[in-house]
């Protein structure tokens, strides 16, 4: 029963081999979907290209529903998987800062790595920026250490917080995603008629 490595079904020796293989698949999917281009990514905020929304939402609902099925068939023990801990004040601020970074840079960390792969200098410069940003954060950490650790709710899921079954969240996400796919398709058609400086 999964997860395989934590349960010793695959030994930890394979961990880094698996890491590289997972990374290759991840990078391939990102590049093949068009995420090695900042102009494709930024399109989601201006209505001329919703590829980010399509890939991201589809991935979230496939993984969510998949996990529920794996749990239902008894293939995975959900209590053993890593749940990101919630520090809500720092996460709210972090999300806002990343939102600004997204609009200025047009990449997120994973996508910038694939931009470097195909020869984009702007991807490389973005990655240098990531390095500097994390360095600046580390050096100034004492200033906001208290804030960084505040509001710790622990490793909580949506179900832990609301008491609502995870399946309902998955269902809601599917409905929202389908609605978003349809609405953005209409928006994209309209916006693309007016945009001339971007090749599709």
């Amino acid at each position: 029963m999964g997860p395989l490595i934590p349960n010793g079904i695959i030994t930890g020796d394979w961990n880094f081999v698996i890491a590289i293989l997972v990374g290759i698949a991840f990078g391939f999917i990102l590049e093949a979907s068009g995420f090695s281009s900042s102009r494709n990514i930024a399109g989601v905020f201006y209505g001329y290209n919703f590829v980010v929304l399509r890939v991201f939402f589809t991935a979230v609902i496939v993984a969510m529903v998949g996990l529920l099925y794996f749990d239902y068939f008894g293939w995975i023990n959900l209590s053993q998987i890593f749940i990101l801990p919630t520090f809500w004040p720092a996460m709210l601020l972090g999300g806002v800062i990343m939102g600004f970074g997204f609009l200025m840079g047009g990449f997120c960390p994973g996508t910038s790595f694939t931009a470097i792969s195909i020869g984009k200098i702007d991807g490389l410069v973005f990655t240098v920026g990531l390095y500097l940003g994390i360095f600046i954060f580390s050096e100034s950490f004492p200033l906001f250490k208290g804030f960084y650790n505040s509001g710790n709710l622990g490793h909580v899921t949506l179900t832990d917080v609301t008491g609502i079954n995870a399946a309902w969240f998955a269902f809601a996400f599917v409905i929202i995603a389908l609605a978003a796919f349809w609405v953005t398709m209409l928006i994209e058609k309209k916006v693309r008629k007016k945009i001339t400086e971007y090749k599709f």
Binding site: F26, F56, A59, V60, A63, M64, L67, I81, F82, I83, L84, P85, F87, A90, M91, L93, G94, G95, V96, I97, M98, G99, F100, G101, F102, L103, M104, G105, G106, F107, C108, P109, G110, S112, V125, F126, T127, V128, G129, L130, Y131, L132, G133, I134, F135, I136, F137, S138, Y148, T157, L158, T159, A166, F169
Partner: peptide
């Protein structure tokens, strides 16, 4: 943008891949 994203990802305990995608997918 990189500087902002880098600093923000430390506050957020992860970026679009680790927090937004994998975090949301695991509820």
């Amino acid at each position: 943008g990189g500087i902002f994203f880098g600093a923000g990802s430390q506050f957020g305990r992860g970026c679009t891949s680790g927090a937004a995608l994998s975090g949301s997918a695991t509820f």
